[in-house]
Amino acid sequence: MVLTLIPNELSSSKHCYQKINIKKAALSRGSFFYVSIKKKYSFFLNIEYRTRNIDIQKVTLLPVLTQLRDNNRLERIWLLAKIDFKKRYYDNSLGIFWALINPLCRFVVYYFAFTYIFPQRIPNYALYLFSGLIIWFFFAQGTKKGIKLLKTKKYLIESIQFKHSDLFIASTISACYSFMFNFIAYFIVSLIYGVGVHPTILWLFVLFFTIVVLVLGISMLLATINIYLRDIEHLWDIVVLAGFWATPIIYPHEITMVKLPFLQYLNPVAGIIINIRETVLNGNAPYYHLLVYDLVYAGILFLIAKFVYNKFAHKAVEKL
């Protein structure tokens, strides 16, 4: 089957006109098709598959701009995330404030336990604890929600055709909303303690990106495993609990860095938390080896998850 690729109005350069032979079988699913072209021109083109017009494919040089203009994908993800976030606090009288109250209460409990019962000798312990808690909270919440996602959104998958991976992006963004609330709370506490804003806070973008990729990868992987093994939900609860104590959240990070270095290589969240504290709280440069290691870890995990997801996730409707 021969398809003619017609360029978008935005890009009128000549090399956009291409004729590509594609195996007929590849047409059966949008994603296959998408992948098969994308391999050839992945670096300079973004080719968009739309079921609406099978003959006309859009070839653009500015993917982000066109997405904003004529595809509602961003809007869709935004709405899915917004509704997801809102739904959790729907019937509660305090509503969205629970997003703030929950981590604050946790923080207070841990703070009293570890200043009065087991005193720690860490400067600015409150902020040290709080920053670790909100990152871990984001990680735990994001991955736990991802496990059940294919089941909770089955009603949409069964009734309308769309790219199902949008659901995962949306649920991660919804977890980001909660993180935002928590981070504002952290910021207020840090102002009370008199810790100013360091310019190294800009590293937060890189570090947060790493953990978002990590959460996205893990939730896709777990959701796919959940189709075949329903136990994974309880198993992951235990892993999250063990991970909480294996991560330097309430104790000084010298323990993992010096005594048990394998922990922070097994668990990338540890490295991220250490680096966020170094940059946001102490105003130092991050540990570059941890930064690079975590980024590579998250990237590889995401690619594996995507591969597994593409291969097995289509069984979701019949098995769940």
Binding site: K24, A25, L27, S28, R29, T51, R52, N53, I54, E158, S159, I160, Q161
Partner: peptide
Amino acid sequence: IVTTNGRIMR
């Protein structure tokens, strides 16, 4: 092979 052309709603 399934080929569809259009927005589908079930």
